[in-house]
Design a protein around this nucleic acid. Structure first.
Lengths: 197, 197
DNA sequence: GCCGGATATTGAATATCCGTCAATAGTGGT
DNA sequence: ACCACTATTGACGGATATTCAATATCCGGC
């Protein structure tokens, strides 16, 4: 067909392009609907080039998910100093903003992780715990929660709750104000933890 | 090899066998790792027969997920009459028991839904809302919650919370007593809703 | 018992996608 | 303008999805 002559790019920007495209496509398709063929076609390259950059389909998927996870961690980890409650609120605000602004990328992360592959799932888990780990009293920092099996269980489940809230609101903001969502996100953790203390 | 001569079954029981097998296999594999070839081999039939019963791979996946969802709805919907709080507790107890006993099947449902396909995802969503829908004051029944966008958002996210709690505890019950888990499951909803009332 | 039609089941043929590799063509330096 | 380096291609081989005409099995009537 109208095959563009051939575009030669630097490895880094080519890699960047492919990862970006993968994240974008993964938000509207499921993992197994995202074929190498379609990706190559969409990127305007041959299939072979994709295998040059990423060993195989699975490795490419893993790279895409890691990409989305890194974006999330980077953009939502403001090491706010201040009162624990304020830091939690600021953290959730950054999280909510990210999910709203980067809806597609976050869906890629969630959907990719869902595909069940252990390695990919662990990327997702680590990204999510990066958002909550500082809530425990590891060193001297923001002392909020005791580190017990029960609170671990609660906090992990709470992050599932927060994710659902953020995703649902990002998709359908009608009828609920942003302030209300923030109040839910920041208030839910103390409310839940107080159940078992 | 030792190909069994050929077994002829009634359509309904054959269908049943294939769906059961699909649900079982899906608990150890992810969706795209569950090939038609393996399924046919495991069931002792030809690939062609699978296409006779389910049009294609995707439709088969959909049927398997729907199967798992129906199991869940059926086994956890005891129309308990009594106080709202008691009904909620009984409901969550049934839910927790189901997840623990039917760990594999429930994982099939979650993982299947995770694969991202819209139709399959909606099956999962409907199953989950079937567990919570009776909490709203639709007719005269268990009047607990007002039906507003905010509470809808909260309840939906709460079911994600409950799912995470149940799955995590089913996988790793160490350190947390069953009673405690039940208290969390049943107590979390009122605690969350009180945030916005 | 045994035939004969209905249909559950098969197996081979085709299409589509993954993954490989030697050949090709931009690009930057001299 | 050439050359070396390497990003990129296109054609090939294998695996898996999907189709369909042919076959084997069951069940009712005689």
């Amino acid at each position: 067909m109208s095959s563009t002559p051939r575009v030669r790019m630097s490895p880094s920007s080519r890699r960047e392009q492919l990862l970006d495209l993968g994240v974008r496509l993964l938000s509207t398709r499921s993992l197994d609907e995202l074929s190498i063929e379609m990706l190559a076609e969409e990127a305007g390259i041959s299939r072979g080039l994709l295998y040059h950059y990423f060993g195989n389909k699975h490795d490419f998927h893993e790279a895409v998910v890691r990409r989305a996870a890194d974006d999330l961690i980077e953009q939502t980890a403001p090491p706010v100093s201040g009162e624990p409650q304020e830091r939690l609120l600021a953290s959730m605000a950054a999280y909510l903003d990210y999910v709203v602004a980067n809806h597609e990328g976050y869906l890629s992360l969630v959907k990719g992780a869902a595909a069940g592959n252990p390695e990919i799932r662990s990327i997702y888990d680590e990204a999510r715990s990066a958002l909550t780990e500082r809530l425990f009293n590891e060193d001297s920092e923001g002392v909020i929660l005791p580190d017990t099996p029960t609170t671990r269980l609660m906090v992990h489940a709470w992050s599932a709750f927060a994710e659902d809230v953020a995703l649902a609101w990002a998709k359908q903001p009608d009828g609920v104000a942003r302030e209300e969502v923030l109040a839910i996100l920041a208030g839910s953790l103390p409310a839940l933890v107080s159940l078992v203390e």
